[in-house]
């Protein structure tokens, strides 16, 4: 299609909020289900939505990457903000660890409870 690069970038910055919204909506729907696996999938989607939100939080710019040229001491001109990417990387790693643990926990709970229906999980209420 006949779009220039900058037109693509503008389209992405308009598309991302919609994607985030869809992720949150699907995540919320799944988290409220009774089946354990669906809850887990919901958590994954919500986590991705939050990560994307931080990623686009600083505003998507069309500036150069924040790399200092070898023969200079500072960046010339405007550059993209690298911090949100550092933040989102941290959040992704932490989310990955928690979800990996959650999957193991879900599996074990399913085996011990012999049911994937959360409404039957009343043993911790005694």
């Amino acid at each position: 299609m006949g779009f220039t690069l900058s037109q693509h970038k503008i389209m992405i910055s308009q598309l991302l909020p919609i994607v985030i919204g869809v992720l949150f909506a699907c995540g919320c729907y799944l988290v409220m289900q009774r089946q354990l696996v669906r809850v887990l999938l919901g958590l994954i989607l919500l986590g991705q939505g939050a990560n994307l939100l931080i990623f686009s939080g600083a505003g998507l710019t069309q500036n150069n990457p924040p790399v200092i040229p070898p023969d200079a001491l500072t960046i010339e001109g405007a550059a993209a903000d690298p911090l949100p990417q550092a933040l989102v990387l941290t959040a992704i790693v932490i989310g990955f660890a928690v979800l990996a643990f959650a999957i193991a926990l879900v599996l074990r709970t399913y085996q011990k409870s012999r049911s994937g229906d959360i409404n039957t999980y009343t043993h911790s209420e005694d």
Binding site: V31, V98, L105, T109, K112, S113, Y121, S124
Partner: peptide
């Protein structure tokens, strides 16, 4: 079984 179910509730809500 009690601990696993308790941990699951704790994990889901704290993750949210």
């Amino acid at each position: 079984r009690r601990q696993l179910q308790g941990a699951l509730k704790y994990l889901v809500l704290n993750f949210i």
